[in-house]
Design a protein around this nucleic acid. Structure first.
Lengths: 303, 303
DNA sequence: TTCATAGTTTGTCCTGGACAAAGTCGTCCT
DNA sequence: AGGACGACTTTGTCCAGGACAAACTATGAA
């Protein structure tokens, strides 16, 4: 039996759980008076679980582009409300069944449901339409407190399974362009990556996916070694826009000018002016056009 | 054209790339004189790429259980040497072909190779034997500078594909125990999770995998909601042992006594005494025994 | 409207100190 | 010999409070 009934989490644990750095947590406390953690005997901050939950909501609002000033002081209720307003709404009853399945918590049923939709829609519409809406619906449901984190996790795990399986069935046509696909360090979400991969694969491009968290220099090395035509980067909403821009600028600088640099994902929504030489692709449908444009600009390549 | 020719990375980027916290980077500098970053005009640290590479090596040595004191001051050469000694050696020529394929960099060929071995070995031996050795071989090759990070990434991406596909073919017998499977926040590696999932699935357990990074309270909620018999946690070598122990203790405290708590992975190697009520399972083969023990202790359940 | 400029907000980084947990080592007792 | 215990050392994490540049906002001119 462990005496682990602490009244709260230390700052490091909160950083890991919320994605807000220790520095930010401390400076918010100083500036806005929230969070207002308890203190351990030695002066260490201890964040009560309610405050951690509230911080998670704040984080998502920031990810939507709101500024701390307007958000940090709000109560949980208000945060939920505001987040529901801010999040893209997939429509009222769009994904009712999915959410019910999530609440029941039978992973098989969820996978089956997704599989069914995939079969109905086909890969293209499934990924760029249905899945996008489902993701939004799930995010919305979390914001409203209808589902919890573990249910979100369960969802993305199932999506991942379905997507990977769909791709394994797709013919590998290996036509140009050859695309190196990955994310920068600090990105934790891999769903976007898979969605991009599926679309590219479907349209006959040769995708070489490296998963998440590739340092800039490694992306460059991979592009060279694989003689890729394009480097494609994915950024989730949770990824700091400033880091994205920084990374893309550095990449553009290090990659040969002949190599395309494509970037997409909710993490770039708030970026006013992307670095020169970077193609921002958003929404996902644009990827197909971009692909065709690349090919028609290079008639030498088949496709 | 961007002026991104900085002589080094800021401390935050180094944290993301190496997994060493800003605090650690600064305190090492103070104590050991390494790293010794340049300074920007405003006093900010700028870590040259060579030092970042060296830090990556240091990090892996710490992950092997060595102490900073003995390691931080060493040169790159010595670090590589020492790491080669410390890492478990899968034998001289064991995975020669795999490494050659990795160096060539054709993902298809790698997947094919893995698939072939899977077919030869069967799931059990593939996961607990061949894959473990392959992982070691790849880690070793990186330590020796034979391959780089992006090649490691490519490898784990292929392994992931092969494993997920193998599991999708496996019959879902859904016998007891029902196992909630995940990792704690801060864990970035998901391979271990998949390997465990494959073994459990093969032996007819009902696995509910939630991917990586589940807060302790969410694990508890998931176990309750899913009426699971066991919570299984995976820890990679990169995961701080102290955090693992802390998290496991908290989990044990919050979970009902009737629910088993199984933990495994290289991240627990250095743990002398795990918290009471936690089953440490290492190596992976033990998982099968543990499963059978669980079942024979509960003759009511089929299996 | 669009664009430049002044003001504000915000994340990140800095120094240098402190301390508890974990590891190491030597000693004593069985 | 082996194991338990206590003293010493190492190490990661946390603290305070200040600073600043980049990003954003608001204001006013063309």
């Amino acid at each position: 039996m462990n005496d682990n009934n602490l009244p709260g989490l230390p700052i490091g644990a909160v950083e890991r759980e919320t994605g807000l750095s220790k520095d930010v947590l401390r400076v918010w406390e100083r500036r806005y008076g929230f969070p207002s953690p308890l203190r351990a005997g030695n002066g260490d901050r201890l964040y009560p679980p309610e405050q951690v939950d509230r911080l998670r909501l704040v984080k998502r609002l920031l990810d939507q582009g709101l500024r701390p000033n307007r958000v940090v002081r709000l109560e949980t209720r208000q945060l939920q409300q505001l987040l529901a307003e801010q999040l893209p709404d997939p429509g009222p009853e769009t994904e009712h069944t999915l959410l019910e399945l999530l609440q029941e918590g039978r992973p098989q049923a969820i996978a089956h449901h997704l599989q069914h939709q995939l079969a109905t829609d086909g890969v293209q519409r499934f990924v760029t339409g249905t899945l996008v809406r489902s993701n939004q619906a799930v995010g919305m449901a979390w914001a409203r407190g209808r589902i919890t984190i573990f249910q979100e996790h369960l969802y993305s795990e199932q999506v991942q399974n379905v997507l990977r399986q769909a791709m394994s069935v797709l013919p590998q046509r290996q036509e140009r362009p050859r695309v190196v696909l990955t994310t920068l360090p600090g990105e934790i979400h891999s769903l976007g990556l898979l969605m991009v991969q599926a679309v590219l694969l479907l349209h006959g491009a040769e995708v070489r996916s490296f998963g998440t968290q590739m340092p800039v220099t490694e992306v460059v090395a991979a592009v060279r070694r694989h003689q890729a035509d394009v480097a494609a980067l994915s950024f989730s909403a949770a990824f700091p826009a400033t880091q994205a821009v920084e990374g893309l600028a550095a990449l553009r600088d290090l990659l040969p000018a002949t190599v395309g640099l494509w970037a997409g994902g909710a993490g770039l929504r708030s970026v006013r002016q992307p670095p020169e030489g970077v193609d921002v692709i958003d929404p996902l449908e644009q990827l197909v056009e971009r692909l065709q444009r690349w090919r028609s600009a290079r008639p030498g390549y088949p496709g």
